[in-house]
Write a protein that binds this DNA or RNA. Structure first.
Lengths: 105, 105
DNA sequence: AAATAATATTGCAATATTACGATATAAAAA
DNA sequence: TTTTTATATCGTAATATTGCAATATTATTT
């Protein structure tokens, strides 16, 4: 006991939770926001904008990538990151459905 | 080391992360979805829809409440829960800004 | 007043996350 | 080829999360 009982929930609930979970850290929010504000994909600069060490940033990037929120392309000895709009749209749609005012409470 | 360095990030980043984090578990997604689908606020039934014990569900409800995602109203010896649309709207707006297709990658 | 019902809290074990130093890897530059 | 640059991985310590049994709390019902 301690691990979450993933297999007791629907695929959809698990997917939404894993996307939300990946965004559930201020460093990862900062990364995603930085990529969103950039005109193009970003190589190199991500470590510089965060108050965290390079290995820690690398770990956060991996989590965002494994949730599908960002994509990374190898570009020489650097890696270019950008947002995966498909996955963000899934989240957007989902939150949109929840955020509908109802006449109660 | 181990705890996240909350104080090194902006209030906005921390708030968005804490909302996302609260949604980052399939049980909490299931709760929120159940409340969204219900016509009115829900007392009592929440424990029954989840494959988890009553104390565990209570803990998840508390996390959703402390992130501001749900509200609970005392109603006799029960508690009626419903979504806090204000907070969901904050998230909706935020994700909406991220999820804008750009011509890159 | 005692029993019941709904929810919260406590205590604790199992596991996951966060962070970083040290080190590895792989491509570019010197 | 050596050095530099950009990123990843390993190992590990500190802390947080998840889950539940046991118990407490609070209001309702009998």
């Amino acid at each position: 006991m301690g691990a979450s009982k993933t297999d007791h929930f629907s695929d959809n609930h698990n997917q939404m939770a894993s996307i939300a979970k990946a965004l559930g850290h201020p460093a990862r929010i900062a990364i995603v926001e930085f990529l969103a504000k950039s005109e193009a994909c970003i190589c190199t600069d991500i470590v510089d904008i965060l108050p965290l060490s390079q290995p820690t940033v690398s770990q956060h990037l991996r989590e965002l990538k494994s949730a599908g929120i960002i994509k990374g392309t190898v570009e020489g000895n650097a890696i270019c990151y950008c947002l995966n709009q498909e996955v963000l749209s899934i989240l957007k749609e989902y939150i949109g459905k929840l955020a509908i005012i109802k006449t109660c409470c």
